[in-house]
Design a protein around this nucleic acid. Structure first.
Length: 799
DNA sequence: GCAAGGTC
């Protein structure tokens, strides 16, 4: 073993990598040691040996000297001109390095081969070099996978430590701290939000918040445009739908003209095409893609990462922080599949093994850091918690899917002419699901389309115009936000989910899909008052190019950091000149909340103002209404007033629960007795919404079992009391809301009133059918005819 | 009470 000399100290970035390096260098003979606050691996033989100290990321953290701990506006200039100090944060690693480096002749940096890895390595070196007696050799081991061959090669062909590279990372660290700390303090101080209410600014978090705010503004300012589509159902074996080839028409008159020309006529096939399409396999998981897919099955990014981390530590999956989407050759894929035969995915594993040859899919990113995320062992059944099992299954299914065959689907398309107008039709059918039958999270929906021949006559029916509206861009959800951050190079695979968490916990964003809070959007308004790039992703791009300069030896770290500090100084100066207006923007936005309705006393607006987890409802004028609620979730105006007290009612949307109505008065009976719908016609007890043992809801008398009066309830929609009593059977009238509308009804199915309204409905329906031109099928907006129908029904009933 | 980046 020529690559080992006696008295060598090896430094690895993490425990796992350390174990593997030691294992291969010692042929499995190294020993883990733990004593008196030290943790390392040791190997000794007659020729030589080594110590290996595993770190866990950075050992030191930069900070400002204690004298600048106090947050004062006057301090900010000092903060920027102050130098940073290094604090040890990993005591065990620090002590191990200090103790074991005594008398060492050679130090090998074997951290990850990337920019941060180089910095982590030099941090360790600085500790070793503190011992003035150290004059040994310093080398760098470069490996891109933790396999025996790579590691042995790296230790036979050392390279030098790249101080330019580590300097570039150190510059990043300092610039992030200077800008982050100075601006965070500035914004917190001018708005007087101190302690845990501070307003944070950072190179990654603020542009990310900026993205979300920008999107929300686009949605707010979006002006929908109406369009009309002419559609026809064709009939051969089954129904398939054609759309006039121009698609969306923004002139209703023209759409009607076309409809008038074609209505009642059949079509003739002008073109027909049929072919097979491949359904490509997904690439192996990297961190980003894993988080996106996990959030699609309801496990949010940071939760997914926590679970992945724990699965990794338990040895069930490979390292979860990776950019790589190509399995390295050294991974024995087949043996992993063999292991999965002893899991709940036995059938799927056998499908993969039954192939003549296993060809893995490849993604675009072939990084050298770690393998893609894949299962390494099978946990004993029942040993994982439910969410862990869900995540493990996702990773295992993804892995198997990347090794299975592609799917195929048949696609058909046609142009069918009616009276010189061409209608396009499309159909698709999965012929061979391939990997889709393993990766069950993806679904391809079949759309029926018959085989046709050119010149063939096709029967048509249901000629119609569908009215729609252009839609604003959609809000980011966790999956698309993480992806957008990756596209813009904001954060890293290991930090993106943390950044989103921070924005949430600091009250800048809420919900999923995410939207900015009043605080979040006003912070961006405040930041963008001054023309600087703090809220733009460009900050990162600029920093990135600085870092490349340093790494290439074109500039020094000190010159770059001082340039950046000067820029920060002038930005800060400009901010200070505008500090009153900025403070007003932010404070002002917090005082004006969302208008949720009108005050029933003086008729002015009532606003909802969010103050951490409390919502304050306040009347705009005299504070004649001023209520506080402890509510988690989003508040939306409902445009309804409370049936009990007349004050506005809001809708509360909580994650994973159906929306609930809430009277803004916390003591109103509407809130406290929400389930009480009215009085029992038999004995005057309370009719209460209850659940049957089958999970169905119904109305039951509070005097059960003495009184057995019950009514069936619709299982969908929100049920509310109306205070009214049915004139026929004396049951309490309920109100059922569904979507945007609501309907009052007697809960007694056999009541006269229900028979009556049913026949009314039929009457309304039959008049509507006579006017096919206004009928809409996939109505994008609640159509006018539908609301007319509702109104008609209501007026008949009230008559 | 500050950032972002490693890792647990």
């Amino acid at each position: 073993m020529g690559y080992l000399l006696p008295d060598t100290l090896i430094i690895s970035e993490k425990a796992d990598a350390g174990r593997r390096i030691a294992y291969f260098l010692s042929d499995g003979k190294s020993k883990q040691k733990r004593s008196k606050g030290l943790s390392y691996i040791e190997y000794e033989n007659e020729v030589g040996g080594f110590y290996l100290v595993p770190l866990s990321g950075h050992i030191v953290e930069i900070d400002f000297p204690k004298t600048l701990k106090d947050w004062k506006l006057e301090n900010l200039k000092e903060l920027i001109s102050s130098n940073v100090i290094h604090n040890v944060k990993n005591k065990t690693a620090y002590e191990s390095l200090k103790t074991l480096s005594a008398g060492i002749k050679r130090v090998i940096i074997a951290t990850d081969y990337d920019r941060e890895g180089e910095l982590i390595g030099t941090e360790a070196l600085d500790i070793v070099k503190k011992d003035k007696s150290f004059h040994g050799e310093i080398k760098r081991a470069k490996f891109s996978a933790l396999t025996g061959k790579e590691i042995k090669d790296a230790f036979a062909n050392f390279i030098d430590v790249d101080y330019n590279l580590s300097d570039s990372a150190a510059a990043r660290e300092e610039i992030d701290l200077y800008w982050g700390a100075a601006l965070t303090r500035f914004f917190s101080l001018i708005t007087n939000r101190l302690g845990k209410n501070f307003l944070s600014i950072g190179r990654v978090q603020t542009p990310t918040l900026g993205l979300i705010v920008k999107r929300e503004r686009e949605i707010e300012n979006f002006v929908p445009e109406k369009f009309w589509e002419v559609k026809v159902d064709f009939l051969k074996d089954d129904v398939f739908t054609g759309i006039y080839e121009e698609g969306r028409i923004n002139d209703e008159k023209r759409a009607r003209e076309i409809l008038e020309n074609i209505i009642g006529k059949d079509g003739i096939v002008n073109e027909f095409e049929k072919g097979m399409e491949r359904i490509y396999k997904p690439a192996p998981f990297n961190t980003t893609e894993f988080m996106r897919e996990a959030s699609r099955i309801g496990v949010m990014p940071s939760r997914a990462m926590k679970i992945a981390e724990s699965l990794y530590v338990k040895g069930f999956i490979s390292y979860p922080r990776t950019d790589n989407t190509v399995y390295q050759r050294s991974i024995n894929l087949k043996s992993v599949v063999e292991k999965l035969k002893n899991s709940e995915l036995k059938k799927e594993a056998e499908m993969v093994l039954s192939q003549e040859k296993i060809i893995p899919s490849r993604g675009r990113m072939e990084a050298t850091d770690h393998p893609p995320i894949y299962p390494t062992e099978v946990p004993k059944s029942g040993s994982l918690r439910a969410d862990e099992a869900k995540v493990y299954e996702l990773i295992a299914r993804r892995f198997l899917a990347t090794l299975y065959r592609e799917g195929t689907r048949e696609v058909k398309s046609a142009k069918i002419e009616i009276d010189h107008y061409n209608f396009k039709t499309n159909g698709t059918r999965v012929v061979d699901p391939g990997w889709l039958s393993i990766y069950t999270y993806r679904k391809f929906k079949d759309i029926f389309h018959p085989d046709l021949e050119k010149g063939e006559k096709v029967k048509a029916e249901n000629w119609r115009i569908e009215e729609g509206e252009t839609k604003p861009p959609s809000r980011f959800d966790m999956a698309s936000l993480i992806k957008e951050m990756e596209n813009l190079n904001l954060g890293t695979k290991s930090t993106r989910h943390d950044i989103i968490d921070k924005l949430q916990s600091r009250g800048f964003i809420e919900g999923n899909p995410v939207r900015p809070t009043a605080l979040g959007s006003s912070l961006i308004d405040g930041v963008t008052t001054v023309d600087s790039k703090i809220a733009e992703p460009d900050m990162t791009a600029e920093l990135e190019s600085f870092m490349n300069n340093i790494a290439a030896g074109e500039r020094t770290k000190d010159s770059v950091v001082s340039t950046s500090r000067n820029m920060l100084s002038s930005v800060l100066e400009e901010l200070e000149n505008n500090k009153d207006s900025i403070a007003n923007i932010i404070r002002g936005a917090l005082e004006t909340g969302t208008v949720v309705g009108k005050c029933n006393i003086d008729g002015t607006n009532i606003q909802a103002i969010k103050i951490r987890d409390t919502i304050r409802f306040r009347c705009e004028r005299d504070n004649c209404i001023d209520y506080y609620h402890k509510i988690r979730g989003l508040i939306k105006p409902s445009e309804e007033n409370c049936v009990v007290c007349g004050k506005p009612v809001v809708t509360v949307i909580r994650r994973g629960q159906s929306p609930e109505k809430l009277c803004i008065d916390p003591l109103c009976k509407f809130n406290t007795e929400k389930k009480d719908i009215g009085l029992c016609p038999l004995d005057g007890g309370h009719m209460i919404i209850r659940q049957s043992k089958y999970g169905k809801r119904f109305l039951g008398c509070s005097n059960f079992p003495k009184c057995r009066q019950t009514y069936a309830l619709p299982q969908k929609g929100e049920i509310k009391m109306t205070g009214k009593i049915c004139e026929y059977c004396h049951a309490p009238i309920i109100s059922v809301s569904f979507g945007s509308g609501s309907r009052e009804m007697c809960p007694n199915i056999s009541c006269e009133s229900n028979k009556k309204s049913k026949s009314d409905m039929e009457k309304v329906k039959s008049t509507a059918v006579k006017k096919p031109l206004t009928r809409k099928k996939t109505v994008k907006k609640s159509g006018s005819s539908a609301s007319k129908e509702k109104k008609a029904r209501k007026s008949v009933k009230n008559a």
